[in-house]
Amino acid sequence: MDDYPVHQISEVVRHVGTSDRNFYDRYYFNCAPRFDGQGQSGVDGPFALIIGLGQYPNLGVADAFAVLRRGDDHLVVRASKALGEDRMDTSVGPFRLEVIEGLRRLRVVLEASPDNPDLSFDLTFTADSPAHLEARHFDRSLERVTFDTQRFVQSGTWSGSVTVEQVRTPVEDHQWSGNRDRSWGVRPVGEPEPPGRRADPAETERSCFFWIYAVLRFSEFVIITILQEDADGARIVEDAVRLWRDPERAPETLALPEHTLRFAPGGREVTHAELVFQRRDPSGGLADPLRVECTPAVACYIGVGTGYGLEQDWRHGMWQGPLTVQQLRRAVPEIAPWERMLCPVDNLVRCTLSEDGGIEEGEGLFECAVIGTYPRYGFHGLGDVAE
């Protein structure tokens, strides 16, 4: 890449523009059968596959994971390696990623090996909507920048195959869909840092991570929503847009997205969500709002075993040695309530859109986390649960 005129700073490409240890550069994908009248097409029981691959230049690490929810089986394969000098080497042990056509087609592969005998796949993602560059995500904690990230997101279809315990399942474009994103910048990664003042009860009492990330697919368009709020409901980041599959139609900004959530008693898992978007009419006045109701059908606990922070011995960007590959399995009913509460849940949802008197059915991703204090929904402390 250093032979191309792509440099952004007076350094070679492998050196990023900040010395912050938390700089990262990551891929995310989700893949699942579409819903039909009986459930998910072509599979028995809940099925969702989520894949991630990241590089951490200032930590000298690259890692990858895949987590499969199949019935009550939570199956994770994860790998970590020393990051080399070639940033275009997007392989980590049995994982590899190929950009076939930028912003259009990508291939992700997990090869079976003695370390991960139960899950492998060879999948190609083909975009069916334009890539959307989201609002920049920026936040500070005690004057330190904790988030300064950029991301684009895109919906699409999948083809190839997934093999679980030597049973191969074909994946075909007309039956399998999902979304992918690319994000990079600064966010907490690697080994835990000393908390210092952040451990003071006065600082933790109002600690909150409220997060909604939704990519909802309909016949002619995709609605994308991202929200993060503090404990008082103030927006740290918000973005909402309707992307039309017809490339001749301009994206439509959906202003002031509002949420109403219901939770399962005894925890914080969402059982129903309503998103309401304000819109402008051609004269600039307020038009009737657009409403989307979402009902989760498949929950994938993306934080369990994958590196998002629950396990202190395996976090994204943590040094695991020159190459380490691991497989682990959990029974979904045995995932503890505290684990479910302290990580985002990637829900595959059925959704209903109401607009101008009409109704349309859709489906997609509704990722949600309500961690810490969030009084609006009755959570006044870290351990509070829905009644």
Rank of each mutant, 00 (worst) to 15 (best):
R105I: 03
R105H: 10
L106C: 08
R107F: 13
V108Q: 04
L110N: 06
E111C: 15
D115Y: 11
N116D: 09
L119R: 03
F121T: 01
F121W: 05
L123C: 04
F125R: 02
T126E: 14
D128E: 15
A131M: 10
A131K: 09
A135Y: 01
D139K: 04
D139W: 04
E143C: 10
E143Y: 15
E143G: 05
R144V: 11
F147D: 14
D148G: 14
T149H: 11
R151A: 09
G156L: 02
E165A: 04
Q166E: 08
R168I: 08
E172D: 12
D173L: 15
D173M: 15
D173W: 07
H174W: 08
S177E: 07
S177I: 02
R180F: 06
R182H: 15
S183C: 07
W184D: 09
W184R: 09
P188N: 10
P188H: 00
P188W: 06
V189D: 14
G190H: 12
G190L: 02
E191M: 12
E193N: 12
E193G: 14
P194T: 00
P195V: 07
R197Q: 10
R197F: 00
A202P: 04
T204Y: 13
T204V: 11
S207H: 13
C208F: 07
C208R: 14
F209K: 02
F210R: 08
Y213T: 08
L216G: 02
F218L: 09
E220M: 09
E220A: 01
F221E: 11
I223K: 03
I226N: 12
I226P: 01
D230I: 04
G233M: 05
G233E: 12
R235H: 12
E238L: 03
V241C: 01
